[in-house]
Design a protein around this nucleic acid. Structure first.
Length: 420
DNA sequence: TCTGGGGTCCTAGGACCC
DNA sequence: TCTGGGGTCCTAGGACCC
């Protein structure tokens, strides 16, 4: 059996940990630039606020005092997430962290009758020690555990735990689950399913195997098997990423190449830091630009360009310099740019980097690596204090709007003192 | 006026080879 | 005018996830 532990309304719950007065109120957490809604409390869901709603469409509710909006504070959420995960990891033999607010527990070796008690204990512990409410769904496959956790969250009677351990419960749950809510069935697939008359997960699970194979690809078949109770989604995801991306929308559109170059340098430096943190290196760098897709009155341009480096690298200097020259290759004057980003991929472990035999100056590489590590150790104390000249000379948050930002309760000494 | 960020996997189709 | 068949590998883009 798998247990899916899911933090309820995670970002909102994190804000509530440090601002208990938000308990019971309609709250939303906004994306970068206070752009759109990325987390909702039950109360704001009940008001009909949808996920990804642009904030300007609901700002009047905040002004009328009917809704509380919080700018996102990812450092805080990451910190609370790791506290939750470490409690889970201490309690069960295996844990697969699936996202910032979800983890699968592998219940191998735990007797079935002790599972409910163990789960209830976890719910209690996480709530008491971290302050975050979680729901747990237990079922024979990950796809079914997802469905179970949805029931655990939605129906008060379950008190946060839904066990799907019998055939009868499986069929009942599938019959009550719209096909679009099934893990792995997105907008496109569910539209197609509905055109075949499939409305619920049970409708789909009841179709014959041949029919599913004929009409859907590998993923559809996999989901179908999982709904039957056959494990297909098993393998744990590796902890090292295959690609790393740093991108931002700008509060104000940018026309100037120098300004854009400073932003892109900064994104590239962030990618390099993420690589070093995971002890990996990348041999491909990509830069992309977006104009504002919502402004039909303005010229549109979505260029992107990649370069393959002769060696996998993770020094700030090398990644930034690759990114800047890519930018110069795609920048075209006369456009207003709304978003830019840097992607590094073709990632390998930093200690298994293949060094070319010819035309490569190892001493330069060593020097770059040393400088990067010194930058890391200084920047770990004061974020972005030491930068390349190419990076913009403002602090990171500049140019990114966040009018409703909470304090850095878990990381900033000043803010911790303020709380106490 | 104002519309997020960061990932993974799969597939189709092109390039290339024999 | 007529112009094969089959395989592999790579990549861009789509679909999906949180």
């Amino acid at each position: 059996m798998y247990a899916l532990v899911d933090c309820n309304n995670f970002f909102v719950s994190c804000e509530r940990v440090f601002r208990p007065q938000l308990e019971g109120k309609a709250v939303v957490v906004l994306s970068n630039n206070d752009g759109c809604v990325v987390s909702r409390s039950n109360e704001s869901k009940a008001m009909g606020i949808r996920m990804c709603t642009p904030f300007y469409q609901i700002r009047h509710l905040v002004e009328r005092g009917e809704l509380v909006a919080c700018s996102s504070n990812y450092t805080l959420y990451g910190d609370l997430s790791s506290r939750v995960m470490s409690i889970l990891a201490d309690t069960v033999p295996g844990i697969e962290i699936y996202s910032i607010d979800e983890a699968f527990l592998v219940l191998d070796g735990i007797s079935p009758e002790s599972v409910p008690g163990l789960c209830r204990d976890l719910i209690r512990k996480v709530r008491k020690w971290v302050g975050i409410p979680v729901s747990i769904g237990v079922a024979p496959t990950k796809t079914l555990a997802k469905i179970a956790s949805h029931f655990a969250k939605t129906y008060r009677g379950y008190k946060g735990l839904c066990m799907m351990e019998t055939e009868e419960k499986r069929l009942k749950a599938l019959s009550m689950t719209p096909i679009r809510d099934v893990w792995g069935i997105g907008r496109r697939l569910s539209a197609r399913m509905e055109s075949y008359g499939i409305r619920t997960a049970l409708d789909f699970a009841c179709r014959p195997a041949e029919w599913v194979k004929k009409h859907f690809m590998l993923n559809g078949e996999r989901t179908w098997l999982e709904l039957q109770g056959h494990v297909c989604v098993d393998e744990e995801r590796p902890d090292k990423r295959k690609s790393i991306c740093t991108s931002r929308s700008f509060a104000e559109m940018i026309a100037d190449e120098k300004l854009l170059s400073a932003q892109v340098s900064d994104f590239a430096a962030r990618c390099a830091r993420k690589l070093r943190k995971e002890h990996t290196a990348a041999s491909q760098v990509t830069v992309f630009l977006h104009t504002n897709r919502f402004r039909e009155d303005l010229g549109q341009y979505f260029p992107s360009k990649s370069v393959r480096l002769p060696v996998a690298v993770n020094s700030t200097q090398e990644i930034v310099s690759a990114a800047v020259s890519l930018l110069h290759g795609i920048f075209r004057p006369g456009f207003l740019y709304k978003k830019a980003g840097v992607i590094v991929d073709d990632i390998v472990d930093e200690d298994s980097v293949q060094i070319p035999i010819f035309d490569y100056d190892l001493s330069v590489r060593r020097k770059n690596d040393m400088i990067s590590h010194v930058m890391d150790s200084i920047n770990s104390r004061e974020n972005n204090l030491v930068r390349l000249a190419a990076q913009r000379d403002t602090s990171y948050a500049d140019g990114i709007r966040g009018d409703y930002r909470s304090r850095r309760y878990s990381t900033s000494l000043e803010d911790i003192i303020e709380v106490h």
